[in-house]
Design a protein around this nucleic acid. Sequence first.
DNA 1: TAACTGCCTGAAACCGCTTGCAAGAATCGC
DNA 2: GCGATTCTTGCAAGCGGTTTCAGGCAGTTA
Lengths: 345, 345
Amino acid sequence: MDAKREITIYDIAKEAGVSTATVSRILSNSAGVKQDKRERVQALIEKYNFRPSALARGLSETHSKVIGMLCPDVRNAYYANLFMECERTAFENGYTLVLNNTFAQESLEIAFMEKLLEQRVESLIVCGGVADWRPLPERYAKSLERFAKRVPVVVAGKLDIEPCHQVYIDHAQAMCAAVRHLLTLGHRRIAFMHGFTYIYQTQDKLQAFQETLQEYGVTPRAEYMINAGEFDEQAGLLGMKRLLCLPEPPTAVIAMNDLMAAGALQAVLRLGYAVPGDFSIIGFDDSIITELTEPNLSSVHYDYVHYGKALIQTALCAMNGTQCARDQVIPFRIAVKASCRKIDA
Amino acid sequence: MDAKREITIYDIAKEAGVSTATVSRILSNSAGVKQDKRERVQALIEKYNFRPSALARGLSETHSKVIGMLCPDVRNAYYANLFMECERTAFENGYTLVLNNTFAQESLEIAFMEKLLEQRVESLIVCGGVADWRPLPERYAKSLERFAKRVPVVVAGKLDIEPCHQVYIDHAQAMCAAVRHLLTLGHRRIAFMHGFTYIYQTQDKLQAFQETLQEYGVTPRAEYMINAGEFDEQAGLLGMKRLLCLPEPPTAVIAMNDLMAAGALQAVLRLGYAVPGDFSIIGFDDSIITELTEPNLSSVHYDYVHYGKALIQTALCAMNGTQCARDQVIPFRIAVKASCRKIDA
DNA sequence: TAACTGCCTGAAACCGCTTGCAAGAATCGC
DNA sequence: GCGATTCTTGCAAGCGGTTTCAGGCAGTTA
């Protein structure tokens, strides 16, 4: 294989009999270049299928036109949705989005941050992962702050680290809505199946769950608030089994997310009960999962298009120095499907 | 906001009283630098949290250390799995993977290719999308070939474009195994629910489906091979409804993928039938979806870890010029779960 | 026809890092 | 102690673009 060097702007200039400056002007479509040269150069660009190096351009213009993104695991529909929308918006604005899966491992998150820093990303979007832990590991907070000192960091979640922007869902309000939905349907024995409590969403939802019940005169029962550990369908299944073994089981269950809700649904069905006949179930995220189960799962729905757009838009604003709100809250609504029913109080 | 320039290797060199060459050597950890200078420079790097610019380095070393990847939609668990594994392997080898979602739109695929070319990716991984169409659009094939002329292209699928490497699943064999699985369970009235036939996987599976049945003395029935159009759960649901309306419905259904299988399952359950009691269902991909439904779906399983690793490994080989097989086939197996049962012949 | 405009163009510096080359410093053998 | 080696270093030339600045040229004006 012959050591073929990439075609450069210099080659084009030489063959066209012009200077690199002229070619550069043509590439960036700036005015003030005679038509004949323009055509001659264009033809050569076509001929050699020349593409200017983003590396060189980035170096010279001191901007990379790339935005970094961190998420624990794109296989999770929630993050996939977010990434997708972010990518779209970034692309529309001439940016490339590079995503890294961190598996919520602190060392990996930090390693990726370093790498993104080297790549001179112009902004960083942080979704979940260690950023959701409370208390926040000190080393991680430091890394994030150092990052934010260089380029804008936008967190998809509530982090409250001074230099970071944040776009998030008000989980307390969302939980409140979910509880009210079930209360309205006549449920009084409502359970909340969550996971690790070192995740702030768990804390927020747990608190809102209890407060909302009390507000409506229902006393929260300790045995109805169960920590299933993980946030996956297996945990949901196991957690639900525990609930079903209770002397007085709940009539409705709120799951931390759709995955757990799907697990809970399986547990119920396997024991021969019906949903929503015997038990009502509602999840959070309104991901594709809700459409895959029978019955389809009611869920708290977020506007991912809006969410992704807001994340990138905020990053864009912060990058070009435009003033923009540090906090943004994404609206939600209850997506009523088929897993909850009205019961007699 | 003060126009803060990034710290450069030059700044470090100056403050440490050495040349940039020395700093560079320390950065790349090459031998032959006195311990005292090394320490002095390291300290400054820490102090300023200096990270060398990958842009500059890439330009100077004429390599970007990034690999590009194209897929239609990461929200699809199949691609998410693949991406995840590819990213892991790439990272382990010091490469960054940048993923673009193309929605299988030809113009977007080509646009992304151009962009990746500018970014000087050192290799391209193409997963699905337009690459699965038959016949292959000419403009697309041209783009791909042009790309392959510069850097190695590895296709996750069977494409047979000369300069591209390919790693794929033998869909015919996989279908064959699925059919045999059902035959072994005693089924004779077996249906295949697929989607658009301009996708080569559809063609391969369709043919294998018929051939395998015939091989076992079962005559394929036209009304049991239905084209549901899309490849999603909605299509699966609708397609299954059509099958259930047949005067003599099948006893088992093979769906093009898990998404469609999940849709089919819903259709069956909604009409009051049982799975696997009344109907057996099997899908392809063995994604997380199979664990979310009740009953869990049997499915044809691919080894994603192996698959992703093979894609990147092949790219790596091709990049450094090592000879490597142009074709690689990924093994599969039937993941038996709970959606198929034995019946009396 | 000389002086003045404005438009095109190219020379050259620069972006931040790597590396070949050659010179100076340190170490070694005798 | 001295020349021969072996280490350490720094200089400077790229890598492939962008951009500033000044010069060349044609068209105007007086």
